[in-house]
Write a protein that binds this DNA or RNA. Structure first.
Lengths: 235, 235
DNA sequence: AGGAATTTGTGCGTATGTATC
DNA sequence: AGATACATACGCACAAATTCC
């Protein structure tokens, strides 16, 4: 393992390497890792150091460590990971999330918007409809600070916005805070969502932060609660 | 450190000992711990082992470890622990939670209630008003399954219901799931909450589970969103 | 300002215990 | 019962951050 001056600690380099392997599918769910001594030799570190890397994966719920049995990848959390921040469910439970972008605009930041950590005053406004099993459940307006990119089009945005942030903009969302309230539906929501403009509806206001703890994004979602509900699991 | 056969590992013995010290107030918030080498000597273990105990405390958010600076107790998490499941905040943020019990009734379980893991068919219904900084913010109706206790009175219930569950009933809440919706306000809510019966309001439906993963409780809270909002932090 | 002292972070190698196969 | 593999624990050396003089 290279030990350049500015580099990350060896155990973090290894754990990040394994995380990328999982994300890329090179390490699949349920796959058994080689014994710790082997892996330590492969990476040219001591068993102690390698164990610290594996402990890190365990803390992230990506690895099942079992004495006498071995270390097993738990990549099930991966696809969930992309949607870990999505908190709407069909009323009968579950539903596969998709999104349709209605509009992408570069605009002056409104005054009532929370601070996004920039002084440019410009931001991207993304409006989209989120669906579960193809049933539209919410309309979402997202404000992404302007400092991250100079161009942004509806075509570029994949189904998972956070995936786009991570892969195209190098922004990993690490934290979010939702405020759930009741708020009038705006006038731009499409018909098929089943929400009447001006009527009170469940509204989720979200702020997100990146690795560096800088605020990135602010969004508001109006939810059709006859189709979906906001779910929060606590443990 | 004693190393009897059936005992916990040394590092866990030490971390549990420190946790008890924090809970009992012998280690106060902000207090600085002795250097690791000193503590290791005190407990008769190696620095490595002691560090593992401290890492455990850090994972529990009870300790702040800073290279070059030392280890500092963060007991703030203690009181928060009791209210960790409380997700309402004043609109300006924060607020100290209190509760006033309106009514405690033993009743037949309604049919539309989710399964509470019992076949007795009886349950306790608790109605109370929750306040933040003495301002009423929500009305709550709780159904506690009947199998846990034969008597329950308003006087017995402390401010924190979960504290009561833990100390009197031996029930530690380990998991909860909130469903947030919009729902008409019931007719029993008191005037000073500022919610009109029958009008739609933010409603939080919660199920809770105990250690054993058995369902315990179901509750619904109607929130005055002009005073408070439902907050969910994700990381 | 600057350098020494203090304190935690990282990493190694090894020995032994214990769960699983 | 034996082999395999992870868990615990020790002691040491050096790096990096902080504090103190």
């Amino acid at each position: 393992m290279a030990t350049e001056p500015g580099a990350l600690p060896a155990y973090l380099q290894i754990s990040e390497l394994l995380i990328r392997d999982i994300a890329a599918g090179r390490l699949a769910d349920g796959q058994r890792l080689p014994p710790e001594r082997e892996m330590a030799a492969e990476h040219g570190v001591s068993v102690t150091t390698l164990r610290k890397a594996l402990a890190d994966l365990q803390n992230r719920n990506l690895l099942d460590r079992r004495q006498g049995s071995g270390n097993t990848i738990r990549a099930s959390g991966e696809m969930e990971g992309v949607y870990a921040y999505f908190r709407l469910e069909l009323r009968q439970g579950g539903g596969f999330p998709t999104a349709q972008v209605l509009e992408v605009t570069r605009a002056v930041k409104p005054d009532d918007l929370p601070d996004l950590g920039s002084d440019t005053g410009f931001a991207w406004r993304i409006r989209r409809v989120r669906a579960l099993n193809r049933l539209p459940v919410s309309a979402e307006e997202i404000w992404l600070d302007g400092r991250f990119t100079d161009r942004l089009s509806a075509e570029e945005l994949s189904q998972s916005l956070y995936l786009y942030y991570r892969e195209r903009l190098g922004l990993a969302i690490l934290r979010a805070e939702d405020h759930v309230e009741v708020d009038p539906v705006p006038n731009w929501v499409p018909e098929d969502l089943g929400l009447a403009s001006g009527e009170p509806a469940l509204m989720v206001a979200r702020r997100t932060w990146a690795q560096t703890n800088e605020p990135i994004e602010f969004s508001r979602s109006w939810v059709n609660t006859s189709r979906a509900r906001y779910v929060s699991r606590i443990s």
